[in-house]
């Protein structure tokens, strides 16, 4: 299956890539990390997260990885090189959008 283009990354998929940029993690920790890095603005549910993880695996943006422990109940995921590139490209796109929003005075100064 051809990889989805960066333009079609959903906000949740992008958030998962960002959450994994710090290293391999498991499903529950990914959800908690997304809640933390978005200040609770995104509170993803288990079903959506695993659907997104499945798609990211299919697209080769993440891969399974060995975790730090021996907990067989948990599967760990980490970014592939393509996933890291996609995360950087998405971050760049968002920062450009943010710059436009700032120029247009759509965000308060203290929020930047």
């Amino acid at each position: 299956m051809p990889a989805r283009t960066i333009e079609s990354l959903t906000p949740l998929s992008a958030a998962i890539l960002f959450a994994l940029s710090g290293g391999a993690s498991h499903g529950y920790a990914i959800i908690k990390e997304i809640e933390t890095i978005t200040d609770g603005e995104m509170r993803p549910n288990t079903g959506s997260v695993y659907l997104a993880l499945h798609r990211l695996l299919e697209d080769g943006l993440i891969e399974e990885s060995k975790g730090p422990g021996e907990d067989a109940r948990r599967r760990y995921y980490r970014l592939t090189e393509a996933g890291r590139s996609a995360a950087k490209a998405e971050a760049k796109r968002l920062s450009q959008l943010l710059r436009v929003a700032s120029v247009k005075k759509l965000i308060p100064r203290n929020a930047q």
Binding site: H26, G27, Y28, T46, Y50, L53, H54, R74, R75
Partner: peptide
Amino acid sequence: YGSEMREVA
């Protein structure tokens, strides 16, 4: 993924 999702849930 079922058992893993149950664990997370």
